[in-house]
Amino acid sequence: MVDLSVKIGDLSLRNPVMTASGTFGYGTEFEDFVNFSRMGGIIVKGTTIRHREGNAYPRLAEVPSGMLNAVGLQNKGVDYFCENIYPTVKNYDTNVIVNVSGASIEDYVATAEKINDLEGIPAIELNISCPNVKQGGMAFGTSCSAAAEVVKAVRKAYNKTLIVKLSPNVTDIAEIARAVEAEGADSVSLINTIMGMAINAETRKPVLSTVTGGLSGPCVKPVALRMVWQVSKAVNIPIVGLGGIMNATDAIEFFLAGATAIEIGTANFIDPSVTMKVVDGIEDYLKRHNYESIKQIIGKLEL
């Protein structure tokens, strides 16, 4: 029996496999395909202080080995979550983590405060990296001072595990990671989507309603791995790695690069039971290499 358990701040995960925000709904959408009790956690949709209709459509462009999305944080707001979603998800036999987004520091703080009161939510993932909203979102994640300011404010209002989701759309992701670590983040997750665009040559128009969107899928994995590796050398807090993970081998690569846990995102769209296969595959890998614990491979890239 290998030990797959890891800790992110005060958060205990039975295994290091979670689902990425915006790719797994509230979990209920995938109930027919997975067993929640075999997952480390579910990170639910980006939640904002007020209802958001999201962007106009088209919101999706397929690209080789990936996709661009321009959803724009469509959600019904934190109060709706607390009243209508939380009563269901709190009963899941896994960690349910809320991804918190905002357009101002006040919004982030107010949303985090409301989630702080929910006993069944052990952590939040602070989204300072959404590329699809005009105001806020990524603006907080692309400068050290703005990232530090929002994390500092949320840290005061939120006393459980605080994971900060970083944007890859920066010159030096390591310095952003250091800035949020200094303000009390318990962990950083990376990467959010990479800003990209798609053009229809025939119509000479952009494919997405917003012109640009967030790139995800296996095409971003090399960038994500590189950033996890860079951040792992820069900070002492645990890293949650994500970006194009499609199978257990991909996941192992993130652990070797320095991730303590991983999130599976876009792969859920191709194979809704992929998380189960990744958990099994990680266990097989560890057995095959005679490891007793997942912790023995974290950051063990051999240079």
Partner: peptide, 22 residues
């Protein structure tokens, strides 16, 4: 019909405008 990713209501990519929003 619309371009779709997940098909199960999770990704919110295939929305259409209705009287009750997307």
């Amino acid at each position: 019909e619309n371009k779709m990713a997940c098909g199960v209501g999770a990704c919110l990519c295939c929305v259409t405008q209705t009287h009750e929003g997307h």
